[in-house]
């Protein structure tokens, strides 16, 4: 028996049971089993169907439209002939009216700005989760406000593509933030903080790594969340090729933009060379 799936849902509304079967339209023999997985905007919970009877179901947690997408299975199924093939589907609820505030979770790549350095760790402020909208797009005034870091999303897009043009967009975005509000999310105490310990900066030669030779205050760094951390900050790591400084200005020189030269060094237009833990640009 196939279940009819509601197109539009409100929070708390059951969408589909966890397991379902599809039958042949002609002779009603069961042809496949379906398993539904809980995606964004849904949760798996027990729904009472009668006295002392309950069933696991995917339940909406947001108001929006349901989207069901087949999940690709990478392993070739070793099921024998007698067993039914199990197809997996991801159920999610999307609502474009209310953008989600993305929260960094373990394994996510985040973009962050270096705030402070010590000999043992670098303190950073998390600006956005990579390839998603920025956290606090409005610098903490009110998450739906039209003021503020309007370039946040484009910043992510441009940095991800690694193009040189991205840098100019970035400087505009930063300029807009400062001009419109005169305040910084970190000043307001309204941003997530992270820290990169010295042993998490590089994958190789961890003992030789020094914080000051890897980051400078103001650098924009792409990092991976390795742990949700303590009450104060997320624990981040840049120990991968594609992680590290993506945008930086020269400290010893004239404040020019720096461009990656190799994994350890960046160079400004004027030829000034500085040490960084550079992210692989392409």
């Amino acid at each position: 028996m196939s279940v009819e799936i509601p197109r539009v849902v409100v929070p708390g509304q059951p969408i589909v049971p966890e397991f379902d079967t599809a039958s042949h339209s002609a002779d009603h023999t069961i042809t496949q089993a379906r398993k539904y997985l809980s995606g964004p905007g849904t949760t798996l919970s027990k729904i009472p169907t009668g006295p002392n009877e309950e069933v696991n179901a995917i339940v909406a947690t947001l108001k929006g439209k349901t989207v069901i997408s087949p999940k690709s299975k990478d392993k070739t199924s070793s099921a024998s002939k007698d067993e039914l093939p199990v197809n997996e589907f991801l159920v999610s609820v999307v609502n474009h009216q209310t953008p989600r505030v993305p929260l960094p979770k373990e394994g996510d790549y985040v973009l962050c700005r270096v705030m402070k350095l010590t000999s043992r760790q670098a303190f950073v402020e998390i600006l956005s989760v990579d390839n998603q909208s920025s956290i606090l797009a409005d610098s903490g005034v009110g998450s739906n406000g039209s003021l503020g870091m309007a370039g946040g999303t484009s910043l992510v897009a441009n940095v991800s593509s690694g193009s040189v043009a991205g840098t100019s967009v970035f400087s505009q975005a930063v300029g807009a933030t400062n001009a419109s509000l005169g305040a910084h999310p970190a000043d307001l105490g309204e941003s997530f903080r992270g820290l990169i310990r010295v042993q998490d900066i590089r994958a190789t030669e961890r003992d030789k790594t020094q914080v000051v030779e890897s980051f400078m205050p103001g650098d924009i760094v792409r990092a991976e969340v390795i742990n949700i951390g303590d009450g104060a900050s997320y624990y981040l790591s840049t120990a991968k090729n594609e992680l590290g400084v993506v945008l930086s200005r020269s400290h010893g020189g004239r404040g020019d933009m720096l461009y990656p030269l190799d994994y350890e060094t960046m160079v400004s237009v004027s030829g000034h060379i500085e040490k960084r833990k550079v992210a692989k640009p392409f």
Binding site: V10, P11, G12, G41, T43, S45, T61, L62, T98
Partner: peptide, 11 residues
């Protein structure tokens, strides 16, 4: 709360 897009078990 529904309007805010915060995830809810039920209304």
């Amino acid at each position: 709360l529904v309007d805010s897009g915060i995830e809810l078990k039920d209304m």
